[in-house]
Simulated assay, not measured.
Amino acid sequence: MLSTESAATVRATIPAVAGALDAITARFYLTMLGERPELLDGMFNRGNQASGEQRRALAGSIAAFATLLVDHPDERPDAMLARIAHKHVSLGVTEDQYVIVHKYLFDAIAHTLGEAATPDVVAAWDEVYWLMAGALIALEARLYAESGITGGDVWRPWRVVERDEQTPDTASFTLEPADGGPAPAFLPGQYVSVRVRLADGVRQSRQYSLIGAADDRRRITVKRLRADAAPAGEVSTHLHERTRPGDVLMVSAPAGDVALSEGEHPVVLASAGIGCTPMMGMLQHLADQGSTRPVLALHADRAAQDHAHREEAAALVERLPRGHRHTWYESGAGGRTGRMDLAGLDIPENAEAYLCGPLPFMREVRAQLIGAGVPPRRVHYEVFGPDLWLAAD
């Protein structure tokens, strides 16, 4: 909870600071990564840096957290903090790195706001930062402890034992621990980070859903991002062009706050494109458990030939006594035509819904689910990369 003095200052300065956050975060990343380039080696995604998505997501999270502190002082935005904490854990973020971020962030605030950055204003926003950082540090410490690891120990070598081409642009990789140790447990819907060393020697990490497990083997699916210029798509391209059975990848411990909840209530799984991957993990779990829960699996894609895991998903739904599946394709046969439209579908009001796909898709489907009577608190979404849903709100 903010002190009374800081709360008044933050409330008064939120419009000015929020309006300058894009400039603040742009300078923050420019100076920090300019002076500490080692942070790009395995920690920060340089594709998101180049596109500006990372700074927009950071600005959105800071603004949202500050607003909640002053508007709802007795509450903590656990959902937002959990999402950030899980992503940090998948990358091995450590407590000391919050001190580095603080230094460069507040240098950027002082530079951008100029004379408006009075001692009182800086002190109030410093309190906001450390409340947010402290909550994240505590959450991350708990997640590390639950996994039996520390922030500097999230990475293990995993050997590729199988590669399966799903579509022209997606491939699945089956992995097993290369160090002889057991594979860690994970919750259906969670992901791992995969870190590779690129041609220029820099290591980069990306997150991929765990879509299946058999003994100590785990499976991920990677969609190749075809971009006009690097660094966009550099990791997926590397994996597609260079990774074959026998190769070793560095893989993090499982993480992710969007996981299938237990119980007997109905489940709605709605995805688009490569957003099908966390849903595959959930479907696999439900099928393996012999679940009798009502399950509605919905997927939208460009065409049937672009739909990764299409036949596998159909087979999993067939194993569910109360499972139903619907697909939508923009072109071609094999499903309904056009965008996902829930009109005419029986959406149980007590369902728990999980979404993954492009942001406009998730916004539209979430609105349809809420319109069908599903409470907003029961609609969960997964996004890989910076959470621009929060930044846009």
Rank of each mutant, 00 (worst) to 15 (best):
R46W: 11
N48K: 09
Q49W: 15
G52F: 14
G60F: 10
S61W: 13
S61C: 01
I62H: 06
A64V: 04
A64E: 11
A66P: 06
V70D: 09
D74N: 09
E75Q: 11
R76D: 04
P77S: 04
P77C: 03
A79S: 01
A82P: 02
H86P: 01
H88R: 12
L91P: 06
I100P: 14
V101S: 13
H102Q: 15
H102M: 08
F106R: 14
A108K: 09
I109E: 10
H111G: 00
L113H: 09
G114F: 03
E115L: 12
A117R: 09
A117N: 02
T118C: 11
P119W: 08
D120M: 07
V121S: 04
V121E: 10
A123T: 11
A124D: 06
D126E: 03
D126Y: 13
W130P: 11
A135D: 10
A135G: 05
I137T: 07
A138R: 12
A138C: 12
L139V: 07
E140D: 05
R142W: 00
R142G: 00
Y144H: 00
E146S: 06
I149L: 10
G151R: 14
D153H: 15
D153T: 15
D153I: 09
P157W: 02
P157Y: 07
R159G: 05
R159A: 03
V160L: 01
V161Y: 02
E162H: 02
E162R: 08
E165C: 00
D169R: 08
T170Y: 04
A171F: 01
F173I: 06
G180C: 05
A183R: 06
